[in-house]
Design a protein around this nucleic acid. Structure first.
Lengths: 193, 193
DNA sequence: CTCCTATAGAACAATTTGTTGCATAGTAGA
DNA sequence: TCTACTATGCAACAAATTGTTCTATAGGAG
């Protein structure tokens, strides 16, 4: 029993448009009417797919707020692995829908359980990737196991997110290099004391 | 030419309610109708004060998003000054309207120039306070001037904001102690090389 | 070709948004 | 106290938005 291709096409077209509206104009403007006007899909069809405004907005959030997984590179050295991982993360923030939508998800999370889940799940993934990088460095004997890994992970990820989402400052290669340098120096000076 | 006390009372009552709605239910629910129902002020009066939905929301944002200034304590030692300053900042995030509203402001900033100004101005203040603390420590000779101050400031402020706004994790005394410890150790090990 | 189902479109009710005119009541000044 | 002023409340209203329902049509599956 396969799904009618028209269902799939409608959903895809509608959510594409909803996503664009969400990014360009904010959550306030994601409505059945706006999506209908943007796509040509009739309002009644949209209501059949998403019975009310909230479910439409939720669908738009969920679709866009599913960022790609980053399998970390862990073949060392630490600086190189960390630079690569955070480079990918920074790229995602700069150049993908996720980067544009993240502020909206952050805000939604304060009143919406669904959005909160999206964020915490996502951050768990990111933290795990960074942790894998540090763990590999410990495994190679590059740093010792007594560094405050949890704090380092938090700083590593917090800085780019804070800079992009909250301060609206540029995330560029130069900034990232300095960030990674500092993280490595912390890891190493705290190592083996 | 003094202002009619009724004007002042209406504005205050209305914005109090708008603020509460903004925090509890999100920006979507800040409308003239909702504020009217919450306060008993008639809709027409509200429209007289704020001609459209956007100006009402903006007013609610602006009112709540004016966080208190924190004059930094700079009489040393570094750990103590930093602990005090970040403690106040953490307290504001945990226990004041600003902490609850910040996610909404962050989101609004991605499509609203006004909200972006609020944030950048505010962050400038916070950064200046942290910088004053480090500068005082340099002045006392506790650390040397060649530490990467800008990065340290960013990390100092980014961590609590990230933790609270994005991860929705607790900001407690224990976490803050470890955060300040790490910052101080970075400042000192990078000092005088 | 036939049955099933998704869509378009229009008509509709309900709610929300914004406007206007008028009576009332609070405020300031003489 | 009396007067002029102005903010508010209220009701009526127009316009836009939101959500529902029905019917005709067209696309897809067997």
């Amino acid at each position: 029993m396969k799904e009618d291709p028209r269902l799939i096409a409608t959903r895809q077209t509608a959510l594409d448009a909803a996503q664009k509206i969400l990014m360009d104009e904010g959550v306030l403007h994601v409505t059945h009417g706006a999506v209908s006007k943007a796509t040509g899909i009739s309002r009644s069809t949209l209501y059949r797919h998403w019975p009310d405004a909230r479910s439409l907005r939720d669908a738009a959030f969920r679709r866009i707020a599913t960022p790609p997984n980053i399998p970390p590179k862990t073949d060392g050295p630490l600086r190189s692995d960390l630079r690569w991982l955070l480079g990918v993360l920074m790229g995602a923030l700069n150049d993908t829908p996720w980067g544009q939508i993240a502020p909206q998800v952050v805000a939604a999370a304060s009143t919406d359980e669904e959005a909160r889940l999206v964020i915490t799940e996502f951050m768990k993934d990111r933290f795990a990737s960074v942790e894998a990088v540090f763990a590999a460095a410990v495994g190679r004997g590059e740093i010792t196991a007594d560094i405050p890994v949890d704090q380092l992970i938090e700083l590593a990820v917090a800085a780019p997110y804070f800079r992009k989402l909250i301060r609206h400052e540029a995330l560029d290669e130069e900034w990232l290099d300095k960030h990674v340098d500092l993280l490595c120096s912390i890891a190493k000076t705290n190592s083996g004391q």
